[in-house]
Design a protein around this nucleic acid. Structure first.
Lengths: 204, 204
DNA sequence: GTCTATATGCGGATAGAC
DNA sequence: GTCTATCCGCATATAGAC
């Protein structure tokens, strides 16, 4: 038991790239729940199973970490969308919508972005957030070939979805008829993913 | 100069109801910019021209203050919407939309709400936020008489608007063609209000 | 590569004067 | 009704050991 000691503390001494990814995932989750200011580096560290100073050390500052989180989230969206159009160019709007909903599986991913979107006044977060949002818009228009009005309506649906997820509206499912109706109307056959996501959240 | 001394500090000794409203406005603005966690009671106090302990004293805690802010914001929305349907029942969707955009004039009002919407996981903010959102939905359906799909699409547009405002996307106007196009497409003849609002923000 | 210990600053809240 | 002074806790960041 000297070769591989995973004793009391993890101390797994992994490659920093892997650790990095682990922390980014944890940070995505925590930032998604509490937002940039509300999340603490200590929460993130504990979620990732490392010490608080380590996450600061690895990313420099909390702010830089947040920026990396939202940039990574953005990449996930675009990669996922590009996969959709690579597969086929039929019925794009709805297939992109499904892909978007699937991204809910990555905890906190869409919510971290949403938090960044309401901090547009911040001198360092704001510009990145705007840039990211416009990147998605341009993708929809240029690569997916949607008309401006179509792209806009896609984004509208996306923002309502983000909001309903942020609100944890699925917690109201069953207990409020209005919530039921709203959720059922708002989600194109993808309610199951949302509800599943809701249970994840509740247990966390 | 002994009767009305408005000496160095304001010390205007106003009725607490007026002071209360003043602080609520300041808080709405500051919470709108930084969110619940990001805003400090001190910023709010300075924006209202009072001392930090005073705002805490008056509302008990920062959390209670935030709750009052979002509940007040909600009331503004509903009052404004009810005025619209009282005036006429024609062309409701678009007239309600205009009324909604007009609410941007109350700095931070829609943004404070938006911040509350992404904190649905919070044990005390979450329930209020959900309740408020559903109240608007129910208004649209029951009082305004919109079909579920219409109400939903109204909310979609509202959430995109909120997001664009949160992003300060109007700052990108002129410098990004995509931003121009997005803003022009997204806003039904109400771009002027948004841009005006953008200038307000920039100067603050 | 990862931790412990800790410095430091800031923010919410309380006490009490005027 | 409103302020000043202040306590206390917490969160980010640094120093340095292993």
């Amino acid at each position: 038991m000297s070769k591989h000691d995973e004793s009391h503390h993890p101390i797994p001494r992994m490659k920093s790239e892997d650790r990095r990814e682990l922390i980014l995932q944890a940070a995505t989750d925590v930032f998604g729940q509490y937002g940039y200011y509300g999340a603490t580096t200590d929460q993130i560290a504990r979620a990732a199973g490392v010490s608080q100073p380590y996450v600061v050390r690895m990313f420099g500052t909390k702010e830089k970490l947040f920026i990396e989180v939202i940039e990574r989230a953005l990449q996930f969206i675009l990669v996922s969308f590009r996969a959709v159009i690579a597969e086929s160019r039929a019925d794009l709007q709805s297939r992109l919508g499904s892909a978007y909903v699937e991204l809910l599986r990555q905890r906190g991913l869409l919510l971290s972005l949403m938090h960044s979107f309401v901090l547009g006044g911040d001198p360092v977060i704001g510009p990145r957030a705007r840039e990211g949002f416009l990147e998605v818009y341009q993708f929809l228009r240029d690569e997916a070939g949607l008309a401006p009005a179509e792209a806009q309506s896609f984004l509208e649906g996306g923002m309502l979805l983000n909001t309903l997820v942020g609100l944890r509206m699925s917690e109201e499912f069953d207990s409020s008829t209005a919530a039921n109706e709203l959720l059922c109307t708002a989600l194109p056959q993808k309610l199951d993913v949302l509800l599943e996501f809701g249970k994840q959240q509740a247990s966390a």
